[in-house]
């Protein structure tokens, strides 16, 4: 997977930025939650790009958000 950097991201238009972040997030989430990855990625894309960029550099914060998203999704589907 090619690395995504803050400068690459901020040089793209806003909608494109979410697309770039989604393409980066999806395979990571698929590794842990194959069936829910598309929806979890969709939920995480509602987070501010600046925070998503932080998560890009800090997997611990990424997985913490993924756990939150999974819990919300399961509660919603229950």
């Amino acid at each position: 997977q090619e690395p995504l950097t803050a400068s690459m991201l901020t040089s793209a238009p806003p909608q494109e930025q979410k697309q770039m972040l989604g393409k980066w997030l999806l395979p990571l989430i698929q590794a842990m939650h194959p069936a829910l990855a598309g929806k979890i990625t969709g939920m995480l894309l509602e987070i501010d790009n600046s925070e998503l960029l932080h998560m890009l550099e800090c997997p611990q914060s990424l997985w913490s958000k993924v756990d939150e998203a999974v819990a919300m999704l399961q509660a919603h589907q229950a």
Partner: peptide, 22 residues
């Protein structure tokens, strides 16, 4: 909008529209 389709699902290659259509 309807909550039935929440959350929107991300597909690579499909422009992301987020929650704006819900």
């Amino acid at each position: 909008g309807s909550s039935i389709n929440w959350p929107p699902e991300f597909h690579p290659g499909v422009p992301w529209k987020g929650l704006q259509n819900i």
